[in-house]
Design a binder for these strands. Structure first.
Lengths: 144, 144
DNA sequence: GATGTCGTAACCGTTAGCGTTACGACACCG
DNA sequence: CGGTGTCGTAACGCTAACGGTTACGACATC
């Protein structure tokens, strides 16, 4: 599975904004977050743009612009973030449709689809059990 | 998430071999399986090679060669197949190490690692609940 | 207006996966 | 002992996804 760092990076950005706001600041800039994540500000803006579409963050433009949380960290879960940044399914079907004249080729996709739906539902449930507040707490609890 | 069809294709191949053997045949060729899956025989050989390393199938060479199951379908689970064909973790960390001088940059990886381990463990448990016998049963139960 | 930041397009490099060709290795058979 | 059919595997190309980078317009504040 070509693993993906989008969920990790999005959680990083949200935790950073949340902590920054608790320190009394209004908004965080993509530049600041990018420095913490050691990447490019555009990457952060693109990712936060998806989170904004999902209603997790807001942005302001103009001088003194930047990003702020749209909800409390406590009310966001990893599932919210996952759905915002990972649209596709976890497991894919064949690239080309199997031979429908073959019994296995005909039945394999509905069969696997059924199993995958159950598994993805469990995954979503697990993701929904972790709030971004939990993430920030564990981040701050890391030994230095 | 760049979804992957390897697990689907491997399950397809195993179900095909299992059914073929139940019909009285000794071995299945990569050509036959490739026809059912509508792909190239080399793709099947590569994939079955990984399943062989995991002890799920065996291969014979020479004339009348081909592939056969090393164990009963009932004793193989999707987890066995998943581990054989998907080595990497489900979620990745940052590509470049975050700024260790930043509190969030420093604590984010251990925090996410902890959550991810629990989630992947749950995923593995779900995968282990489905046997290839279950897969073949559902394949044959598909409406035509 | 000048400034600073977002918003977004465009392009490049890397990687993973799949499809394809090719050919040697191997075991059976006549 | 050579012919045959299949595996085993290397090599290459194509495509898609992702992240990094540059660039520049849009916008709001001063």
């Amino acid at each position: 599975m070509s693993a993906n760092s989008r969920l990790t990076l999005a959680a990083h950005a949200l935790a950073w904004i949340g902590l920054y706001q608790r320190q009394g600041h209004e908004v965080a800039t993509s530049e600041q977050i990018a420095t913490s994540a050691n990447t490019n500000p555009v990457v952060i803006r693109r990712l936060l743009g998806e989170l904004r579409r999902a209603g997790l963050v807001e942005s302001r433009r103009g001088v003194g612009a930047g990003w702020s949380l749209a909800r409390e960290l406590r009310s966001m879960t990893l599932l919210d973030v996952y759905e915002a940044v990972e649209p596709g399914p976890l497991f894919a079907m064949h690239r080309t449709t199997p031979d429908q004249g073959c019994v296995v080729g005909h039945g394999i996709q509905p069969a696997m689809q059924g199993f995958y739906e159950g598994i993805e539902e469990t995954l979503r449930h697990e993701l929904s059990r972790v709030t971004l507040e939990n993430v920030l707490r564990d981040v701050l609890a890391a030994p230095r």
